Amino acid sequence: MIMVTGATGTVGREVVRLLAAKGVETAAVTRDPAAGALAGGGRPVVGDPSSPQSLAPALDGVQALLLSPRAVGGASAELLALAARYGVRRVVVLSAVTVEYGGGYRRFAEEFERVEDAARASGLPWTFLRCADFDANSLAWAPQIRATGLARGVYADAATSPIHQRDIAEIAVRALLDPAHGGRAYAITGPESLTQRDRARLIGEAIGREVAFEEIPPEALRRAMLAQGLPQDVPDRLIGYAAACLAEPGPTTDTVEQLLGRPALTFATWAAEHAAAFRS
């Protein structure tokens, strides 16, 4: 059995779906019983991964753990120690490409480094998936695009190689099922470097409507995001990384193609799949 933390999140939901398609029993961890039932076929495990003891009854028989730091919060070391006591054989950690390549505020990379260090210290065989920013982050523009045809944000020329969640999930499934990936840290990105303007244009092509990118000052974006009730770290992560990638584009790797034997999925593919979210 595989335990997936963050099972209703962008990557976790895909992982659960792919494992179910392979007939692999999955414990899909969720704080919300109703949401867990929608997690793609896995068995919902109601618990709070940031309070690992709430998951203890479900760890019996688990062979591998997908650890989402966003879901687990500061309890990664405790959860990993508990998993080791219950005989879990390996852990796959969703980490960030900034651990390897830098960029953005240093404190955010350090958060992922602490989780990686906890995995190493746990004694469990580990695999780190150091991900670029997600294609799905662009869904934050959907209300603006539907209403105005504009995507608003900071640093229009900041360039990264965003990655499709399905690519991350396919690699995660391989690492969860195959111990040969133990002790490996993979930097995984999309196949091409895109500016913010490029992404807005590609969304426009997907919906058959011109979408322009409107650059706004960082503080204006911060105020808007906080007014929506988002935690303060969210605009800080976005603004800090965008500023870094304006000075130097984020990395582009061929890791997806090396591991999956096919090219990484493009942002245009993601935009076409999610076009309905951007149409008015």
Rank of each mutant, 00 (worst) to 15 (best):
228 Q>R: 12
174 R>Y: 07
97 V>W: 03
261 G>K: 02
27 A>I: 11
231 P>V: 01
38 L>R: 15
121 A>I: 12
151 A>G: 09
271 A>D: 02
207 I>M: 06
232 Q>W: 13
273 E>S: 15
135 D>T: 11
270 W>R: 08
16 V>R: 07
118 A>Y: 01
28 A>L: 05
10 T>F: 05
46 V>C: 10
260 L>N: 04
36 G>I: 06
124 L>K: 02
96 A>K: 06
120 R>L: 15
243 A>W: 09
136 A>P: 04
177 L>N: 12
127 T>W: 01
126 W>R: 06
61 G>P: 10
13 R>V: 14
108 F>I: 08
41 G>I: 03
166 R>I: 10
272 A>T: 12
111 E>W: 15
29 V>M: 12
66 L>Y: 09
25 E>P: 11
41 G>F: 07
50 S>G: 12
122 S>A: 09
255 T>G: 02
139 L>Y: 08
190 G>V: 03
111 E>L: 14
107 R>S: 13
32 D>L: 03
257 E>D: 13
21 A>K: 06
248 E>Q: 15
69 P>Y: 03
7 A>G: 07
200 A>W: 00
136 A>Q: 12
43 R>L: 09
99 V>F: 06
130 R>V: 06
171 I>H: 06
107 R>I: 14
146 R>Q: 09
279 R>F: 04
31 R>A: 02
238 L>K: 11
24 V>S: 10
30 T>Q: 11
85 R>N: 04
161 S>Y: 00
72 V>K: 03
129 L>Q: 07
223 R>D: 12
119 A>H: 06
102 G>N: 10
38 L>A: 15
205 E>M: 04
279 R>L: 10
245 C>E: 08
114 R>I: 01
204 G>S: 05
64 A>D: 08
47 G>E: 01
245 C>G: 04
27 A>W: 13
192 E>V: 09
63 Q>H: 11
16 V>L: 08
93 V>T: 01
164 H>Y: 14
113 E>W: 11
198 D>L: 02
257 E>H: 14
36 G>A: 04
265 L>D: 05
157 D>C: 09
208 G>H: 05
151 A>T: 10
111 E>V: 10
48 D>W: 09
255 T>A: 07
21 A>G: 13
228 Q>E: 15
226 L>R: 07
92 V>K: 02
10 T>E: 09
166 R>M: 13
221 L>E: 13
8 T>L: 03
162 P>A: 08
86 Y>C: 14
265 L>W: 10
123 G>W: 09
